[in-house]
């Protein structure tokens, strides 16, 4: 009943890149990595009212080996950090990370001896989601943005080029510590 029935000659042409991106984004399996308060909001997102099932993502995998998205929901302590990295390493490529909440993104209000000041010290992060805790709508927005990113992810030689370009841009960019007069 969808577009597939209206195609003039019954087939579509596209690139492998687009097809792979489309397939990947539509079958994300998040690993449960609930840590603190944010985890409760993550569960709420999966439950009745917000219903993550609408995006085909309601099945949280208990085992990292069957998951490709890690939602780090909550504060990561120094004691938890090695565990987190191990879980990340156990996930098969390609994999993505959403850092949910200010604690996971930057340490948030807990700037102290116990908390890792941003989970990006341990694992590469694709989406930073601010909020304390972020509302379920915000989590869904982050997930949709990630879907979009996955959809347009380059493959093969394009990927290499994109990485090189990103590296070049990063080298040229002004480090935050040298930015002046932009405090706002």
């Amino acid at each position: 009943m969808g577009i597939e029935e209206k195609l003039p000659s019954g087939f579509l042409l596209t690139s492998v890149e687009t097809a792979a991106g489309w397939v990947r984004k539509a079958s994300l399996f998040p690993a449960t990595f609930g840590l603190a308060c944010c985890a409760i909001e993550m569960m709420t997102t999966g439950a009745g009212r917000y219903d993550l099932a609408r995006f085909g993502m309601e099945v949280f995998r208990g085992s990292p080996r069957q998951a490709d998205l890690m939602i780090v929901a909550g504060r990561v302590s120094q004691k938890m950090a090695p565990v987190l990295r191990q879980v990340y390493d156990q996930m098969a490529n390609p994999k993505w990370v959403i850092s949910m909440g200010v604690c996971a993104s930057s340490g948030g209000m807990f700037n102290n001896y116990a908390i890792v000041q941003g989970v990006d010290h341990i694992v590469p992060v694709d989406i930073y989601l601010p909020g304390c805790p972020p509302r379920p709508e915000m989590l869904m927005d982050a997930i949709l943005k990630l879907h979009d990113k996955i959809q347009h992810e380059p493959l093969g030689v394009n990927k290499r080029r994109a990485q090189e370009l990103a590296e070049e841009l990063a080298l040229e960019a002004v480090p935050t510590s040298e930015m002046r007069g932009l405090l706002r």
Binding site: S106, N111, N112, Y113, A114, Q117, T176, S177, M179, R180, G181, L182, L183, R184
Partner: peptide, 17 residues
């Protein structure tokens, strides 16, 4: 024992722990 926080860097400014 110090609190152990790190200075937070903003654009052009630093907020100590």
């Amino acid at each position: 024992y110090p609190l152990g926080g790190i200075p937070v860097e903003y654009k052009g400014a630093q907020i100590p722990a």
